[in-house]
Amino acid sequence: MLISGFDILFFWDARMMMQGLHFMKDVPFRTLYLHGLVRAADGSKMSKSKGNTVDPLGLIDQYGADALRFFMAAMESQGRDIKMDEKRVEGYRNFATKLWNAARFCQSNGIVASTTLEAPKADLAVNRWIIAETIQAVQAVDLALADYRFDGAANAIYQFGWSRFCDWYIELIKPVLGQMDAPATGPEADETRAVAGWVLDQLLVLLHPFMPFITEELWSKMGPRDHDLIVAKWPMADARAIDPEAAKEVDWLIRLVSEVRAARNELGVSPGVRMPVHVRDAGPDTQGRLARQSAAIARLARVDLTEGDGPAGGAVQVVVDEATFVLPLEGVIDLDAERARLTKAIAAAEKERDALAGRLGNASFVERAKPEAVEKARADHADKAAEAERLGAALSRLG
């Protein structure tokens, strides 16, 4: 039997490895993680001959090492290859910028490094809500990492950091903190600063394995510390800090503001225009929330709560839970012109939706076209169907 040099080398390496294992009396790896291939944006394998390779150093120069690192983790779904999409890398660079600006806001408003691993005590609903959101984010990240779902962990951090902390929480606490030239004082302001500092610290620790450079920089800039971020204790997922009632109230507030903003945007109402809003069929819980959150609703949705049911027509209606919120449009927009615009936009969206449906219903196209072309057609069809439905809802709201 002929034995090649490769066979001899392999036999020698295997023998030496077994001797090493016998000496250590243990195996070198108990868990092996196999990740997918990194492919070009169109799904094809990267090849120098095709000219579709990507220079990682070039991406780092353009978007930063943190953004590229986060992209690789967020896209790493088990059993799936990664498509190298620079737009996604750019999106995670924007996430880093968003976090940086949120930290600067905290610095400017007297929010500093936290001194406790446990959540501070809180009475305000918005603070109890963000503490619960933080605990739930920690739980989601812990579960994902335990299951080696790095994409799940990265996306849980992204959603919590961008939407919950940077967007909603920062906006909701601005009135409590006052203005930079006249910062608010008192128990509510002190509580909010303590909670915001604690939440930011938890976010930086969670994000550090994915974005080590920006998180370490922010950690060092938020106040004096006795240790670096890399050796900070991992957050505790203490479910006792979750307050269901506060979560329900602030989630209701977010849904109401989001629905009103979406309705205004669909109908072309200028963001600077303040509008009256009439409330119908509000139950006791909603009435209590309206009383407690009226200032936040007025500021975030650019509306003024007004007594009475409001007009039956010429208005946009937003339904949240059992209550209907009526925003009169007479004098705000040209109702006839807006109906005509929406009708035309609906017809265009439905035409494109039906054309894509016909293409997808053609067996020849589905079988012969490239998989990425079929996938794009399905995504476009879903987008047009959703657009037609959204515009139809906006038209029906006009009455």
Rank of each mutant, 00 (worst) to 15 (best):
M1Y: 07
M1K: 05
F6N: 08
D7Q: 10
I8Q: 11
M17K: 07
V27H: 06
P28C: 01
Y33T: 13
H35A: 12
G36F: 08
R39K: 15
S44I: 01
S44M: 09
K45Y: 13
G51N: 06
Y63R: 00
M75L: 05
R88P: 00
V89Y: 10
V89C: 12
G91T: 04
T97C: 06
N101C: 04
I111Q: 11
A113H: 09
S114T: 14
T115M: 03
A119P: 01
A119T: 03
P120I: 08
A122R: 11
A122E: 05
I130Y: 05
I131E: 03
T134S: 13
Q136P: 01
A140Q: 09
L145F: 11
A146P: 02
A156W: 08
S163H: 14
F165T: 06
W168C: 01
P175V: 10
V176P: 04
V176H: 03
Q179K: 15
D181S: 09
P183C: 07
A184G: 08
G186V: 01
E191K: 02
T192Y: 04
W198N: 05
D201S: 11
L204I: 09
L207H: 02
P209R: 06
P212N: 02
A232F: 00
A247C: 06
W252N: 02
R255I: 03
S258D: 13
R264Y: 15
L267I: 05
G272A: 15
R274G: 13
P276K: 07
V277K: 00
R280E: 03
A282C: 05
G288D: 13
A298Q: 08
A301Q: 09
L305C: 14
G310P: 06
V320R: 08
T324D: 00
V326E: 04
L327S: 05
P328Y: 04
E330H: 11
V332A: 14
L335M: 08
T343M: 12
T343R: 15
A348M: 14
L356E: 08
G361V: 12
G361T: 11
E367K: 15
A373W: 12
A379D: 05
D383S: 13
A385L: 10
A388N: 10
